[in-house]
Design a binder for these strands. Sequence first.
DNA 1: TCTATATCACCC
DNA 2: AAACGGGTGATATAGA
Length: 569
Amino acid sequence: MKIFLVDFEYSAPEGFMPRPICMVAREYFSGETVRYWLWDCPPKDCPIPTGPDVLYVAYLASAELGCHLALGWQMPVHVLDLYAEYRWMISGRRPFAGYSLLGALQSFGLGGMPAVEKSSMRELAIRGGPYSCEEQQLLLKYCESDVIALTQLLHCMLPHLNLALAVIRGRYMSAVAKVERTGVPIDYALLNAIQARWRELMLGLVEKMDRDYGVYEGTTFKTERWAKWCSAAGICWPKLPSGELDLKRETFRKMGVLHPQVLPMYELRTTLAELRINKLAVGPDQRNRYLVGAFGTKTGRNAPSSTKSIFGLSRWIRHLIKPREGMALAYIDWCQQELGIAALLSGDRVMQEVYNSHDPYLAFASLAGAVPKTATKGSHPRERGIYKVASLAVLMGMGTEALGEATGTSGAMGARLLSQHKEKFSKFWEWSDGQVDRATMGETLQSNYGWQLHPEMDGPTTFRNFGLQANGAEMLRIAAMAITERGISLCALVHDALLIEAPLDEIDAVVADVKACMASASRAVLGGFELDTEAYVIRWPNRFCDERGAKMWETVMELLGANDSPAPV
DNA sequence: TCTATATCACCC
DNA sequence: AAACGGGTGATATAGA
């Protein structure tokens, strides 16, 4: 068995696929090191072995594996990603010096300075070629210094790792590399039209709606001016405990009921907040690409940049997602994923039945005696809405007051909802309380495939929710591996959902295949319990539509004067 | 003028 | 008794 420690330098402008610059690989036991310049004419095949007898070690391996994909090289069978493992190791603890390779090394007391200045190397990589001989030598030297650091880090971390679980996480990084390369197809012309007139659009809105207030300076809201306007209008504006004005969207909405003259300001603030679209990272091939940020959270979820990823921005912006000619997309999610996980992990049979019922929220309402057994979504929309919010909020540990607020009722009703939940799902609460107790006693919480949380900085609500979210993240990882390993184009990962792409005449079969992968992933995490999935298919020439963002989309299209109204779902 | 903090927006 | 989980990012204000 051989262990190769690998690092690439590469150039990857926003939205572009990476272009490898150079690579250094070092064999752990022999110390033998190979250096390859890759910018001009890279070797056709990977110069180091990648078979089942090799462990491929990298730091944030999605980058290295993305270079393999770019070069058409074989992907390694076994990957160990020390970034993922470092996040795993210290999950729930404060990082000693951040999550970079050097930060990880410092946490082991090995703070070796890099041989070459890091920021200048990054600039050199981003700049792209051609590179002079000196620059080549500099980049290779820098690359090698990272490989040496990586070697030291492996030495430090090896005794702490669970290799069987670590290589599963490494395998996920291969899936991530593919997702980061595939990206999301975008209606580029329309995006450009919006971006080109973005500033003008914002200023136009402010100009029109701020006229009567005089609160804005350019596109920025001035709190002092708002205070002045309020006192002139004889309005006593609510304050935060800190003494600052409470400028929450919700506060504006509520104050609008009492003082309708503030409503246009509510509209303006809402619209401006949602109008952020200028950083969306779209490459010349009209696809949205960004780093997935695998294992970026303490529950093991991905943490992509919310401005670079189209799924991190407001929902109306998803209307820009559009399959290329002859292609189709499908957005597939697990139905009520965390509810299902809660039902299974806790072993609560009642909750499992509710989950498996046609409409879990109504089923809870019915159990609580709030609606008749015969109730439907149409007959009792209000009650269903309340019990839906309650079902989900309870999983995050919401208290009575907040629950009353969230359901638009009262603290008393919040208390009632909570006690109904505790009564009907007593087994769940036993389990949930158990998680809190164990963590409070200092026990590290574990998900079913070994993600963990050290209970050092967090409180009871986090402990309650950890198992649900961490197992959900695991489910997504297992599905993503299965899907990409079947050669299916996986465009995006969205926590409990994913976006895939296929030719029009294959999409139905591919969706069936993906749903099977997702069902299988749920069984893998939940010991045979299967979660249902729902698919939304978008066929060219239609675009992605989200009803929760439809109104804003129409507003923007109107402002733009484009006659491209959203196609029917 | 720059940076740190708080608050708020969005996403699941 | 506690009491809305996990994120990223923009913006406004206060402090150096």
